[in-house]
Amino acid sequence: MTVKKDKVVEMHYTLKNDAGEVIDSTKEQDPMPFFQGHGNIVPGLEKAIEGMKVGESCEVKVEPKEAYGEHHSEGIQEIPMAALQGIDNLTLGMELQSQDEQGNAFIVCVKEINKDTVIVDANHPLAGQILHFNISIESIREASKEELEHGHIHAHGDSCSH
């Protein structure tokens, strides 16, 4: 069996930035399960592992446009401190939920705290970065009809009620 759309794949990975620093890894943990072809992982990685088999491994370099996108300066905004009333212990790096004009929720990260204003960034923390993955395919299986209908993987074949 090979990695292809609608398969449940488990993989181990180590993610590094361009400087070679480890950003994330499944080492010492269970492999990460995901649906192939459903946008559960960044597009560049999804394309790179298509057709791989259990036991295979590879290194993948993913450009920003195929990962978390380019960093957009308009994602950085200065907002008045008064807009954050009710938020206790505001700290650098804190993630806050915001809404766009259409009411869609998105996350911003606090980058700077001033006397009267706060600088927030709506860019993904890895936006604009080249990502380096070292991956190994640990298992591949058919997704159940129920998993495909529900849009998520059931651990060890468990079902859930909706």
Rank of each mutant, 00 (worst) to 15 (best):
E95P: 02
E142K: 09
A82M: 06
Y13F: 15
M11D: 00
E10F: 02
C160M: 15
L45T: 01
E112H: 01
K47W: 12
S136R: 09
A127M: 08
E112P: 01
V120Y: 00
I41E: 01
E149M: 03
E142Q: 10
H124C: 11
G128C: 07
L84D: 07
C58I: 11
H156M: 12
Q29D: 01
H38A: 13
Y13D: 09
H38D: 13
K47T: 12
S73Y: 13
A48K: 02
A155K: 12
S159P: 09
N114P: 03
G44Q: 00
H152V: 06
E56M: 09
E146I: 04
T2Q: 13
F34H: 07
E66A: 04
H162P: 03
D30H: 03
I113G: 03
V118H: 05
D18M: 05
H12D: 10
G93H: 12
V120N: 02
E74V: 03
G103K: 08
S57F: 11
M81Q: 13
L148G: 00
V42G: 05
E74W: 05
A19Y: 06
V108W: 05
N89D: 13
G151Q: 07
P33E: 11
N114V: 14
S159K: 15
E112W: 01
V8E: 12
S73A: 14
T2C: 10
E95C: 11
Q77S: 08
I79Q: 02
F34E: 04
T91E: 10
E146T: 04
E78N: 14
S136W: 05
F35A: 10
N123C: 05
E147N: 04
H150Q: 12
G37N: 10
S159C: 15
E146H: 10
E95R: 12
S136Q: 13
L96I: 10
M81R: 11
D6H: 09
